[in-house]
Design a protein around this nucleic acid. Structure first.
Length: 390
DNA sequence: TCTGGGGTCCTAGGACCC
DNA sequence: TCTGGGGTCCTAGGACCC
């Protein structure tokens, strides 16, 4: 989906179309005040001048999505809001409306499933679709079906998307980036040299900043450079698994099947504080946050019907150093009290000398509740046995 | 100028078992 | 005398993705 979060916001506030708009910013909801000020009026009647600007933003958030108008100024996903504010102070900021985003996510996926039932979910705004057995899926190398999907999604939601068609997921993902927004791109096996090899290695889904840096230190900048190196060379420097994978990726080889369903492995909740907090000095407020995270996580698990045996905590200090500790139980848990107790044991072993900016709780090794004997779930401990760390 | 939140997968060392 | 090989589980960190 093209600039998904921002596009969803523009459906609500069409008067902002064409203006630089940035979505993100964490808990703070900059349009709360707006909603109060214009209560009772149609949202589309709120003048663009009334919206909050990036230059007035203060906080620790990052950008989730920027509109194409905002991207012209060099701002983009994952950039800190304060940095973005210097690059494009006049951009309008809106928070992510998660409920609305999830609603449109379900809508566009339903449209696709009606047309092509073999679909793999890749998060809120992305899917893989198998065209193979869809009637007409091969016409004009898939262009006809791609166009039908775009048109159907647009009619149902008002949103645009970009489609890449290729022999496998790796190439299709790259192809989908070629012609944004609202584009279609087709990559055939024989296009590898002309369309894929000139691209920077970073364009491979699975090559991030660290590997990209290491590659460029080896003089490998484009995917063609990568393809020119031997498998052994790459295995020697990147390990058996990743090295061999890099080599295959450069040659456009990918035999991963489409996964139409999957079971969750972990669930977590974490929060970055508005100001750094210290384990001793801010004991009470940290303790309250800790308990709240456990309650939210338990609610998530119960709502989705899962329990897990490994409970982890995550902390990040003022120097952005992250540490995790975990505790594995004999039986899976899904209650706030049991999670809090196990997380407390893990937290006791964590380094807590420095001020903290983030605290998180995670449950791993999940098992569907339906697959569990009720008796396997650890009963909530009595109040008196709770460990109060902070 | 600091850098969200929710995930998956991989690596590597150590304990422990046969 | 100086010490196997294989397997599983647990723990911690890290790369990467949306």
């Amino acid at each position: 989906m093209d600039a998904f979060f921002a596009s969803v916001a523009l459906l609500r506030y069409p008067q902002l179309k064409g203006l630089p708009l940035v979505i993100g910013g964490g808990r703070r909801a900059p349009d709360d005040a707006l909603a109060r000020r214009f209560a009772g009026q149609p949202l589309a009647d709120i003048p663009a001048e009334a919206f909050p600007l990036l230059k007035d933003y203060t906080g620790r958030g990052v950008i989730t999505t920027a509109t194409y108008a905002a991207r012209q100024f060099g701002v983009g996903s994952a950039m800190g809001m304060m940095k973005a504010a210097r690059l494009c102070p006049q951009a309008i900021v809106l928070p992510v409306d998660f409920e609305e985003v999830r609603r449109y996510s379900r809508m566009f996926k339903e449209v696709i499933l009606e047309i092509a039932p073999q679909m793999q979910d890749r998060g809120v705004d992305e899917v893989y679709i198998d065209f193979t057995d869809v009637p007409g899926g091969q016409r004009q190398s898939g262009r006809v079906l791609a166009r039908l999907i775009q048109k159907s999604i647009h009619e149902a939601t008002g949103l645009t998307c970009s489609v890449g068609v290729a022999p496998n997921k790796l190439l299709a993902k790259m192809a989908s980036e070629f012609n944004k927004p609202n584009g279609i791109s087709i990559v055939h096996e024989q296009d590898l040299q002309s369309m894929i090899w000139p691209l920077p290695c970073r364009k491979i889904n699975g090559v991030g900043p660290k590997s990209d840096l290491k590659l460029s230190e080896l003089g490998i900048h484009t995917i063609g450079d990568l393809a020119a190196r031997s498998r052994d060379f790459l295995v020697d420097r990147f390990g058996q698994s990743y090295g061999a994978w890099l080599h295959d990726a450069a040659w456009g080889r990918d035999d991963r099947p489409l996964e139409t369903s999957s079971e969750p492995v972990s669930m977590s909740r974490e929060t970055t504080f508005e100001r750094d907090l210290h384990a001793v000095h801010d004991k009470e407020v940290l303790g309250a946050i800790f308990t709240r995270l456990c309650e939210q996580l338990a609610a998530d698990l119960q709502r989705k019907g899962y329990a897990g045996r490994t409970v982890s905590i995550k902390i990040r200090d003022d120097q952005f150093k992250t540490a995790t500790r975990n505790h594995t139980l004999a039986a899976p848990v899904d209650t706030a009290a049991a999670i809090r107790r196990a997380a407390g044991l893990a937290l006791k072993r964590a380094p807590l000398a420095r001020p903290l900016r983030l605290l998180g709780v995670k449950v791993d090794a999940l098992i569907a509740r339906s697959a569990l004997d009720q008796a396997d779930l650890v009963a909530a401990p009595p109040e008196s046995s709770q460990i109060n760390l902070f």
